[in-house]
Amino acid sequence: MEVPILKQGEYLIASIQSALTDADLLQLRDVLVEHVGRYRSRGVIVDVTALDVMDSFATRTLRDIAHMIRLRGAETVIVGIQPEVAFSMVQLGLTLEEVVTRLDFEEGIAYLNSKKAGSSTKLGSAIPRRTK
């Protein structure tokens, strides 16, 4: 199944709807990396909420996507990893090093917005600050 990719302002949003084959994953990678350049996107959100299994190939491909997009000058956030999936990934030894992950879509957007604002706080400015 092909993953729909939405263009939302400066961001691209890929929302995975169901389990993907290896070919689907590779296609997602190619399309995202190509789109980032074409639309001059600054950020990419990959929503994996619907995935209840992430094996080594899926994880590696997600990591590749994030790294390739970084090289193309944009940020990637993986959002919606399920608690069970997260635990089984680390058990397998897959930890998505150097890839930004956030709880859900909302948090992902907040992270990208914080990057755009040039804020460099470790967790981004997702948390509302008291203005003096």
Binding site: D52, V53, M54, D55, S56, Q82, P83, E84, V85, F87, S88, M89, Q91, L92
Partner: peptide, 13 residues
């Protein structure tokens, strides 16, 4: 469900 996820992942591998 956590164990089911581990099993599914192992089968996939």
């Amino acid at each position: 469900s956590a164990e089911a996820t581990l099993i599914a992942t192992a089968i996939s591998e």
